[in-house]
Design a protein around this nucleic acid. Structure first.
Length: 290
DNA sequence: GGTCCGACCTGGCAGC
DNA sequence: TGCTGCCAGGTCGGAC
């Protein structure tokens, strides 16, 4: 499930290829992956040139040269794939065109042909992901509702302490609130709390400044470590995360608690416990997280 | 305003 | 072998 490190990995790949490219044909195959009218999105993108690719929280942000913003949220199983342009003989080019026009990936929900012959495909098994084209002002309004970017200088231990102090929720659920901190999901919330030795059930306002400082370092550390390993891929099914080249992430083997129920804590050996908070699994060590 | 919870979505998998 | 039902979880909207 793509969280900040996975989206950042995809953005870095796409940012090498897409800026300067113009969409010559847009084809939305499943309407529910578009917020609003699919035909309107197709019309909005055909002829548009991508200026840059970036990330805000878990959102992919394609800035267009005319100032508009094309955002995409991958939710659980969304993926972006890029097929490079094929070079070679006319016959090979013909075969390549035929291959592109054939119904390829059964989970390709939207397809964008670019001016260099490459193809950008949005793949989503469960079709929970969404995309939309907004004006610069519309995107600014949406962005304003998001919380602090955890890898930005604005995210400080003092800010985290202040945010925690004003919440009565359990700290694990607090970390998942995108209006507070944008980008942390279920995996990295559990991992950061383990690194900071904080129980996921502790009330946010009871974390205190000392633990808040440890949690700040843990959040930044685990996100940076996961980005260095290109994100977390838990399995090998069509629903598991891969980057835009189809390559899985390598952070799963470094997970301390997530998806390790019953296995020994890497610090104290106590079996990792799984509980449900806010309808989601939380993994933690009952001995060294307090 | 803050918090909680159901709905959305479909492949994978356990149990029968 | 085939069927059934549960599980995964990010976000939104409605209820409290």
């Amino acid at each position: 499930m793509p969280e900040l490190p996975e989206v950042e990995t995809i953005v870095r790949r796409l940012a090498r290829r897409l800026p300067g490219r113009t969409v010559i044909r847009a084809d939305v195959r499943r309407p529910n992956v578009v917020r609003g009218s699919p035909r309107k999105l197709e019309r909005a993108l055909e002829g548009a040139t991508i200026a840059s690719v970036s990330r805000r929280g878990k959102f992919l942000v394609f800035r267009l040269e005319d100032g508009r913003v094309w955002w995409s949220h991958l939710r659980m199983t969304g993926q972006w794939r890029v097929e490079r342009p094929r070079r070679g003989s006319a016959r090979r080019a013909g075969r390549a065109r035929a291959a592109r026009d054939a119904p390829a990936d059964p989970y390709a929900r939207a397809v964008f042909d670019l001016d260099d012959g490459s193809r950008l495909t949005y793949v989503d098994v469960r079709t929970l992901g969404e995309m939309e084209v907004l004006t610069a002002r519309g995107w600014a309004r949406r962005e304003a509702a998001m919380g602090v970017e955890p890898l930005s200088p604005a995210f400080t231990p003092d800010l985290l302490d202040d945010l925690l102090d004003h919440s009565g929720r359990q700290v694990k659920e607090f970390l998942l609130d995108q209006a507070k901190i944008a980008g942390i999901g279920n995996i990295y919330a559990s991992e950061a709390l383990w690194r900071a030795r904080i129980s996921p059930r502790r009330r946010a306002r009871n974390v205190g400044p000392v633990r808040a400082m440890a949690l700040h370092a843990a959040i930044v550390g685990v996100l940076q470590d996961a980005i260095r390993k290109a994100g977390t891929t838990l399995g090998e099914t069509s629903q598991d995360y891969v980057d835009s080249d189809g390559v899985p992430g390598g952070f799963a083997e470094f997970l301390a608690v997530y998806d390790r129920e019953g296995e020994p804590c890497r610090r104290c050996g106590t079996p990792i416990r799984r509980i449900v908070q806010g309808q989601r699994s939380t993994y933690y060590c009952p001995t060294c997280q307090r």
